[in-house]
Simulated scan of single mutants.
Amino acid sequence: MKTAYRFVFVILIITTIVACKNDSKSKPDSKSQNTKVENKDKIPKVKIPAGGENDVDVSHIKTLTQETLENYLKSYEIKNPETIVEVKTRFGDFKIQLFVAERLHRVNFIRLTKLGYFDDTFFHRVDSGFVVQGGNSDKPSTQKLRAKIGDYLIPNEYNPLHKNKYGFVGMAKPTSQKVSNASSPFEFYIVVKKDGAHHLDKEFTVFGRVIEGMDVVEKISQVEADASEWPIKNIQMDVNVLR
Rank of each mutant, 00 (worst) to 15 (best):
S176Y: 06
M171Q: 06
R209D: 05
G116Y: 03
V210C: 03
E187G: 04
F130G: 05
T65W: 06
I154P: 11
I235A: 03
P160H: 00
D119Q: 07
S128K: 12
Y76N: 04
K148P: 10
L69A: 15
F91R: 04
P49T: 10
L200H: 09
R125A: 12
K47M: 09
S59K: 07
I78D: 08
D57S: 03
V169Q: 05
V85S: 09
K173E: 09
K178S: 12
I220T: 05
T121D: 14
M237E: 06
L115G: 00
G135H: 00
D93C: 01
S180E: 10
G196N: 02
W230E: 12
N234E: 13
E77Q: 15
P28V: 02
Y5W: 02
V216Y: 02
D23Q: 04
D93E: 08
V37G: 02
E212I: 06
K25E: 14
H105D: 05
G129D: 11
E67H: 09
K202T: 10
P28W: 02
I84M: 07
V210I: 11
E102A: 07
H162I: 09
V217A: 01
V46F: 00
Q177M: 13
E70Y: 01
K27L: 13
K42L: 14
V241M: 08
E157R: 00
I220G: 01
S24L: 13
K25I: 12
I235M: 00
A19F: 10
K74F: 12
H124Q: 08
L115P: 12
K193Q: 15
S141V: 06
S141T: 15
Y152L: 06
H60D: 14
T83R: 08
K202W: 02
N234H: 05
E187Q: 14
A50G: 10
S180W: 08
K202Q: 12
K36N: 11
E53A: 11
M1T: 05
P49L: 00
E229P: 00
N108Y: 00
K165L: 08
G208T: 03
H105F: 06
V191G: 04
K95D: 11
I220Q: 05
T83P: 13
R90M: 11
Q66A: 07
L73A: 06
F207V: 15
S75Y: 02
Y189A: 04
I190V: 14
Y152P: 12
P174K: 02
V126P: 05
F188T: 07
L104M: 09
L104S: 02
F123V: 13
V217N: 08
K42A: 09
E218N: 03
W230P: 04
V206Y: 01
D195Y: 05
T142I: 07
G170M: 03
K74D: 15
K74I: 11
L153D: 10
K36G: 12
N22L: 15
G92A: 07
R209Y: 10
P155C: 04
V107Q: 10
K40A: 02
Y5P: 04
P44V: 01
V191S: 02
I96L: 03
K144E: 08
V18S: 12
V191H: 02
V8Y: 06
E86F: 00
E203I: 07
